[in-house]
Simulated assay, not measured.
Amino acid sequence: MFAHEIESFLEEDLGYNDISCKLVPERDVEAIIFTKEDCIVAGLEVAQSFFDYFRIHYTTDHTNGDRLLKDDILFSLRGSSLSILRIERLVLNFLGHLCGIATNTRQCVDIARRYSDVRIACTRKTTPGLRKYEKMAVIAGGGDPHRFSLSDTIMIKDNHVKMMGVEAALLSAKEKAGFTQKIEIEVESSADALKAASAGADIIMLDNMGPCDVINTVELLKRSSIPEHIIIEVSGGIDMGNLEDYAKTGVDVISMGSLIHQSCWIDVSLELTI
């Protein structure tokens, strides 16, 4: 985390007249941060950035992706009482949010692994300003971050196809793409999936298709001998409730906005041990 990011978060949380933290005498104290429920750990480097900024000494026995039980200690801290109180809520908010995403992701990965080695990925449905942290939490949970921005991969979405058609959109993308960029296209029918494969797509996303339609489309593409490098992805309306059905379809990637927007915060607490 860059210093300007830390300072932006501090400006929001501390405001212009922080009296509450100044009520206590400033002296060196010790504290612990611990989990109040089982979880997968994420966001340790974010917390460490705040500790370093305020010169708070910390130790931890964990790395992102570890599985923790209720009452496990995430961090032991030593430093200024004023500094620890000032970063308390920010650090706990980040840890609670990111551990929640990692925990949700791990549960989804575990469900999928019962049926196939399909990759579980998130989407760009992220909280503005927090994307890189949320996607790192997905990685901690065993998921794939997908694209970080529009510049990473050329994505031809449904509205592009409506205006241009599958072939014309892919042709335009290939003309503009850099040599390192893959081209992905969303399709909503088996017919358009075949067109996309023939027109040179690198990734074909089957968008908002039910599991049976996905199975039929995957089988059709395989019978048509699509190039081996083409990745088949499915997305749209997938969550923990129907993930099992999609994990059995034979696709390479399942992308789920719900990894982030349906995750629940993990209860994390800080306690002075003096």
Rank of each mutant, 00 (worst) to 15 (best):
R86M: 15
F179T: 13
I32H: 06
A173Y: 09
T35K: 00
S49I: 10
S258L: 01
A102G: 05
A121K: 08
L68T: 09
K135P: 04
K195A: 07
T127R: 13
R124E: 12
R114V: 09
E228Y: 04
P227I: 03
S116K: 11
P145M: 10
E26L: 02
K162L: 10
P211N: 01
K125G: 09
L95H: 06
F2S: 09
F9S: 12
I40G: 01
L259N: 00
G257H: 05
H97E: 09
F179S: 14
G250D: 00
D252P: 02
Y16C: 01
M209V: 11
H4L: 10
N64R: 05
F148R: 10
E5Q: 10
Q262H: 15
K176T: 01
I84C: 12
D38R: 12
H261M: 03
A31Q: 11
D66G: 08
M205D: 11
G15S: 06
S198E: 14
Q262R: 15
K195T: 02
S263Y: 03
L170W: 09
D152W: 06
M163W: 04
E37Y: 04
G96P: 13
T103C: 00
K162D: 08
G96V: 11
V161F: 05
L130G: 02
K36R: 15
A173L: 06
D192Q: 12
R124Y: 13
I111H: 02
C108D: 09
V24K: 12
A47D: 08
K132Y: 14
L14C: 02
K174P: 00
V91Q: 06
L170N: 12
G15T: 13
I156L: 09
K36Q: 11
S255D: 03
E188M: 15
G65F: 05
L272Q: 10
G142W: 01
E219K: 14
A140H: 11
